[in-house]
Amino acid sequence: MNNELNEDHMPTNGLEVSEVTVRYAAPRSNRRGGAAAERASAAVRGVSFGVARGEVVALTGPSGCGKSTLLRAIAGLEPLAGGTVRWAGEDLAAVPPHRRGFGLMFQDGQLFAHMNVAKNVGYGLASRGLTSAQRQDRVSELLVLVGMAGFERRAVTELSGGQRQRVALARSLAPRPRLLLLDEPLSALDRELRDRLAEDLAGLLRETETTAILVTHDPGEAETIADRTLIMRAGELLP
């Protein structure tokens, strides 16, 4: 199924990435160089793949291979130098990140330090026409889901590394993103915690039937969490 998608660019009901190229941000590109240097400055080169609804795909490869850049390009945080990103057939080029309905979980969580746990988790629910009681319910529901029940009023600065990532996951899941992008969500944690959270994450994604792309450099983690694994080298997808 995977190969069919890649080769034929069939419209799917999920994510379709085709021939995507991303260049490094401005600081590097102002170095002088000819066309060759220009080509070499691409962080992601002509990458195509698809993700069906409900599927969890892992993107692995050595550090610097462009996997995080690709993920950020799908989120809309990096501009495309070429190619298209589509969801259910719609080209997302003109859709800004906050209108894509995608979630992104950062490696270091990026929790808002000036808000407590509940405010963080509820942040993405603000524009959904929910009453505040409904919002609170949803927040509690997600905190139960990630094993952090009762932490609503806690300051995020008091949490341990693992707890922070659980809250960050709950925050990303709360608005029910149609696609969840996970950027090395566990790599800042120590080994033992990482293994346990990987199991939890795998279960959670199945339970909530979330479509997801997981970026990781750890093949074991990819194996545990994802349905299938794509490997990147030097900005390109290995066949």
């Binding site: 906050h98 209108r99 894509r100 808002f112 603000a126």
Partner: peptide, 16 residues
């Protein structure tokens, strides 16, 4: 990335 985190959670530029 704090602004980006808010943005991917659906916050408009004004709300960010």
């Amino acid at each position: 990335r704090q602004r980006q985190a808010a943005s991917v959670l659906g916050a408009s530029p004004l709300r960010v």
